[in-house]
Computed example of a mutant assay.
Amino acid sequence: MSTPPNPPSTPVGPPTEPTGTPTRETDSIPAPAQPLSLEKTPAAPATPEAPATPEAPAAPEAPETAQAPEAPAAAAPEPVPAPSAFAPPAFAPPTPSAPAPAPAAAGFGAPGHPWGEPTPGFPGAQYPAYPQATPTGNGLAVAAVITGGFGIFLGVIPFLFWAGTLVAAVGVGLGIGGIARANKGAPNKSMAVVGTVLAVLGLLSSVGGFFLTALVVDRADSRVDRQIEEDWGPDGRHPGIEPWPSKSPSPTQVPGLTSALQFGETYTYPNGIKVSLSVPAKYEPKSKYSGERIKNAVALTVTITNGSTTPYEVIYAVPNVRDDQGMTADMAFDSGSVPKMISGSILPGESASGILAFELPKGTRSITADISPGTGFDRVKYAGPIG
C-alpha cells in the first residue's frame, strides 16, 4: 500500500473561524423583575459593557479539512415584561450569583455557621393547639347522692334535724357542681341530678324533723306532769309525808298566835309538833376574845318535840328577838359555845334542843321573841322579862 503524498494533518487547538468573519456580540441577559415593594429601591449601578473580542490573527493556510458543523446559536431568552403597578406582588426567582464560599472548618477561633441559609417562599409551619383532655370521672355526682341520702336519714330523726339540714345543704352544692361538670363533658349527669333532688328532699325532711322534735318534747312534758301528779298528789306533796298544818280560822283568843306566851311555855300544833323557848338568862362569854365583843347578851334555849307519828325534818328554827324598844337583837357568836341550832330529823316522840345568844342594849329588862319549828308553821309569840 502506497503512502499518500500529502497526508491530512491533525488540527491542534480549538477550531477557529475563517478570516474576516464578524465577531458576534454576546447578547445581554435581561435583569429579572424585582418584587413590588413599598420601600424605595436604590438605583443599581450601570453594568459596563464587555469589550469586543479582538480578532484572532490569521493562521497560515492549511490544507482543507473536513469542517465541523457549526453549533446552532442559542435562542435569545424572551424579555420579561415590566410588572404593572396594580399587579399583585409575585415571588421572583433567585438571582444567579456567585456560589457562596464554603464555610470554614469549625475550630478554635472560627465558629461554624449555626443556622442554614433562609429559603425564600417557604413559610414556617404552625403547630396545632393541644386538645383539652375530657374529664374521665365525676366524683361530685357520687358525693351528692351520698350526702343527699344522709341528709334525708338525719333530717327525720328527732333532735338531729339540724345535722340533716347541714348535710343536705352540702349535698345541694355538690349536686350543682356535678351537673356543671357534666355539661363540660364529664359522665354521670343523671347521677348528679338525682343527688341534687335527694339533697333538696333532705332539707324538706329536716323541716319535718323540727316539728317532730317539738311534738316529742310536748308529749314528754305532759307525761312528766302526769307522773308527778300521780306520785305527789294534786297538792304537790308525797302521800307518805304528813300534810302541812292547815291554818285554822283565827279565833278570838289563841295564846301564842293572837297573844304572846310566857317564856318557858310550850305551844302544840295540830299535827303534834311542839315548840318552846326557855326563860332568857344572862350569857357569859367563854373566851377572852368573845368577851371583848359580847357585853350584854342573853341566851335562849329552843326545844322542839315531835308528837306526830312520822319523823319530822327540822330545816330552820331560829327565833327573832327584840328588846323592850322594839329593836331587833343581833345574834352573838362565841367560839365552841353558841350558836347551837337544831337540824336534822326528829323521830316520833323525841325532842331536840339548841342554844342561841343575842346581844342587847345595856339596861334592857324585857324582850319579845317569835319562833317557828319549820317552813309552813305559824310563828309562836313569846314575851317576858330577862331572868
Rank of each mutant, 00 (worst) to 15 (best):
F333P: 04
I179H: 01
P5C: 12
A129H: 07
F358Q: 01
A299Q: 05
F122Q: 12
T268W: 01
P5Y: 13
N271D: 12
E313Y: 13
P88K: 10
F150Q: 07
S278D: 03
L140A: 14
A62S: 09
A82V: 10
L201W: 08
G107F: 04
I146C: 06
G349I: 00
L36P: 01
P249I: 04
A52G: 11
A299K: 09
G178H: 02
G137R: 09
T65Q: 12
K340V: 07
V254N: 11
E70M: 06
S287W: 09
T47A: 14
L347Q: 14
D378Q: 15
A281N: 03
L204A: 15
A106G: 03
F358V: 01
I157S: 09
V200Q: 02
V279Q: 15
Y283V: 00
P158L: 00
E49K: 15
P243V: 00
T213M: 05
D221E: 14
D221A: 15
A169P: 00
N296C: 01
Y316C: 08
F211P: 10
P114S: 15
I228C: 07
E39A: 14
T196N: 12
A43C: 08
A182E: 00
G20A: 01
P8W: 10
Y269D: 01
K247T: 07
R379T: 11
P280W: 08
G376A: 04
P249M: 02
P280D: 09
T213W: 07
M1T: 12
P103R: 01
E284M: 11
P239F: 12
T303V: 10
I355Y: 13
S206Q: 05
V216D: 06
L36D: 09
P361C: 04
T303F: 05
A192R: 01
L277W: 01
T26Y: 07
G109Y: 02
A297R: 00
R226I: 06
P255R: 15
A369Q: 02
P83S: 07
F210V: 08
V207Q: 13
R226C: 03
S337N: 12
G344M: 06
D324Q: 10
G264C: 02
A74Q: 10
P60V: 05
P245N: 08
Y267H: 09
L215A: 14
R226P: 00
Q132C: 02
A133N: 09
K247G: 08
G209T: 05
L198Y: 04
A52P: 10
H238A: 08
A87F: 01
L38F: 10
P255I: 04
T10R: 13
